[in-house]
Design a protein around this nucleic acid. Structure first.
Lengths: 210, 210
DNA sequence: AAGAGTATCAACCATCTGGTTAAACTGTTT
DNA sequence: AAACAGTTTAACCAGATGGTTGATACTCTT
């Protein structure tokens, strides 16, 4: 019981963050009770305030870490030296995987971003967003002008990829209800989409299509 | 001030519902304060409880009316006698229009549906969901077997249409931030999508594509 | 004009919840 | 072993919030 201290310490912090992620993402910022998070992390409620000053700060920490993760997936879209097609395939697959881990996260991120419009800019300071956007934009333009893909605006392409990847995971309850799917069927459907969505996007970019 | 009673009565109810829609959809169920809704409706807080027993019932009323609206758009997808292509175009356009009116609605619908899994089935009783699904499914199968569209599962087609229509509107804050768009640019981008998404879907269904 | 039903309001209340505090416990340093 | 710093806990508190109440006003009917 000597060398466990250090790990215990970070353990508590990490347990809190993991617990907060779960609770926030299912109940939203306002719906989440500090007591819920404490229970989920198996600690005393006062410990939350010991490690994180208050609910808002705890929330912003979770929020920021999530953004960082999503952002790094974005960077993968422009960073490596694979073909355009392979990058899209990788991005779609990564995006679906990340979102599937906490399917309700985009819901509460977007809800909070609507409530507090400054939140995003506050949390994105220091992240090279402009650079990534520029790189992706250039990449698309290059593909277009070389005739490898048909003319598309980078904005709409980006939005299409994101929509097709993220929304189905987020909308699980509605989709399962409307389509009458069991949990297993839904999951394999999502798994299929990792290639299906990329196929659709790439097919759509084919300059000789139709 | 004589004949205004009847209208005032329904007026109060309607004002409350409209106000609750706005407040719920921007702040979520838990984030919305009864006082906020009262202020927004320009009435006394006690009036909320006069017209609606409690917060939950007010919420469920709003929720149900929204579902009904979305559902009737669904029915338009299978009801009229236009061509398959025209129906898809009409559905995409309608869907985007409806969602644009209360862009955060899907967020809180989905968040609440996750918190309370029975909510959807509770609110969908009596609505001919199975019939609509069957009709749409048959329609797709008919198009496929006649060779007018390439083989697709109706599930994935439905999900694709929904994702491409709904998500961009919902994700406005994130999209505008990441792509550096002003409000005006965003709105015209969404407007463009009414045809752009339908084009994409229809192009994708072309059996001779690629 | 009296009565009934409806609508409106200010004040009030019980409870929940985020946050605090002061004390106790743990391992480390001196 | 005593002082020390970091960690954990139970008990507590102030403010916010959903909901209630009892009185008052309005409108229509008779």
């Amino acid at each position: 019981m000597v060398d466990t201290l250090a790990t215990d310490v970070s353990d508590a912090r990490e347990r809190i963050k993991a617990a907060a992620s779960r609770v926030f993402s299912t109940k939203g910022l306002d719906g989440a009770r500090m007591q819920d998070i404490a229970d989920e992390a198996r600690i005393n409620k006062a410990m939350l305030h010991y490690y994180f000053r208050n609910k808002q700060q705890l929330f912003e920490m979770i929020f920021e870490e999530l953004l960082t993760r999503v952002f790094s997936a974005l960077e993968a879209l422009v960073a490596d030296h694979a073909s355009f097609e392979d990058r899209i395939r990788a991005f779609v697959s990564t995006q679906i995987t990340i979102i599937s881990e906490f399917p309700a996260m985009p819901l509460f991120v977007l809800l909070e971003a609507r409530k507090d419009p400054e939140l995003l800019s506050r949390k994105f300071v220091g992240k090279p967003l402009d650079m990534v956007r520029q790189r992706f934009s250039d990449m698309v333009d290059r593909e277009v002008s070389s005739g490898r893909i048909r003319p598309v605006t980078f904005d709409q392409l980006f939005i299409n990829i994101l929509s097709l990847s993220v929304y189905p995971v987020v909308a699980e309850p509605m989709i399962r209800f409307v389509l009458g799917m069991e949990s297993g069927a839904f999951q394999s459907m999502i798994e299929n989409r990792k290639t299906l969505v990329a196929d659709l996007i790439i097919r759509d970019l084919n300059p000789f299509s139709i």
